[in-house]
Write a protein that binds this DNA or RNA. Structure first.
Lengths: 180, 180
DNA sequence: CATCGACTGAAACAGTCGTTTCAGTAGAAG
DNA sequence: CTTCTACTGAAACGACTGTTTCAGTCGATG
């Protein structure tokens, strides 16, 4: 990946965070980031490949969060707290909107550039949550159920937050959850 | 709304359940349901209006579920069980995929045909869950937090289910949830 | 200087989009 | 029979899509 390519990818990524992925179009995108459709196709191959690159770029941001949570067995309760703090941060909202968009799209249209995005992200997150569980619980059936529940709470809370912005009510709901 | 219009709306709705809303296009839709773009526009006004009508139609199916849950104060735990049984049913999956699609779209593009869909659906569901809570709990701050949590669990579980289809694991997670 | 590869601008290509124009047909009402 | 309303088919409109063709420019390497 050339330097110019990395530069344009970063610019395109910023553009997508603001405008969404759903009706991304090469000409407006190129105009906004000071390039041309010709160049984008030359560097990325096709629009689908560009979208794939953008999704991979978004995933980097996501993985950075997962890195912050850490692999220490701090327990699900604290893991949920930490992830929620990250999700609720105002500056992450554009990324999270794009995330939901890509997730939904990959459910409806399982081929093409979005293939497997939803499934991959579920398993990413379950993996991180598993690493937070005490070793004795991790491999039990109940352990799997408990981290599945933790993930559901976080994802559901995120959907609510993106729709209503009502951070206080949702934070109270998460606090209500007892990850005994 | 004329008879022919209702008929075509129903056919278009079935088409959308199979093909999604994201790249709905008049010509293929019309061809599939035995009509023409000309007629669809004549009857519905514009494509945006047609999409609005389709979203309203999907909402009818959703409201039918909410009706089944009932307005009796059966407690959140049993309400969650009942709603989950409906969400997990195989035959509802196309509807739920379209639902996620519309939800995501209305987050990214808050104007146009999708406007307010996400927000409206959150408040719909919170209303129903509220009606399931005992009267004494309903209006407390904790009552709000607890139904927000119940909604998050259901929505998060739904996302997981649509991505992985792993009904057993997710059902176990919901069972793990103690709606004390 | 010549040559090569990386990169780019302008324009065209074939296709699809939502929508409109025009010209009807069918059935009921006067 | 005429007139009105509801509805429909065929074709065109202008705008936009991803992609390709052709013709370059520029900097480094031989």
């Amino acid at each position: 990946m050339s330097e110019r390519q990395a530069e344009l990818l970063e610019a395109a990524y910023r553009y997508v965070l603001q405008h969404g992925l759903a009706d991304l179009s090469l000409r407006p995108l190129a105009a906004a980031i000071g390039s041309s459709p010709r160049v984008l196709l030359f560097l990325f191959g096709s629009k689908d490949d560009l979208v794939r690159a953008l999704l991979a770029r978004a995933r980097e941001d996501e993985l950075a969060l997962l890195g912050d949570v850490g692999a220490a067995p701090i327990g699900l309760a604290r893991a949920v707290e930490r992830v929620w703090a990250w999700l609720a941060a105002e500056e992450h909202r554009p990324l999270l909107r794009v995330w939901v968009e890509a997730y939904a799209r990959s459910l409806v249209e399982p081929d093409g550039a979005w293939a497997g995005f939803a499934r991959a992200t579920v398993s990413d997150w379950l993996g991180v949550l598993a690493a937070c569980q005490p070793a004795g619980e991790r491999d039990t059936e109940q352990g799997v159920a408990r981290r599945t529940l933790a993930l559901a709470v976080l994802r559901g809370a995120l959907l609510d937050l993106l729709a209503t912005g009502d951070e206080k009510r949702i934070a109270a709901a998460i606090a209500e959850q007892r990850m005994h």
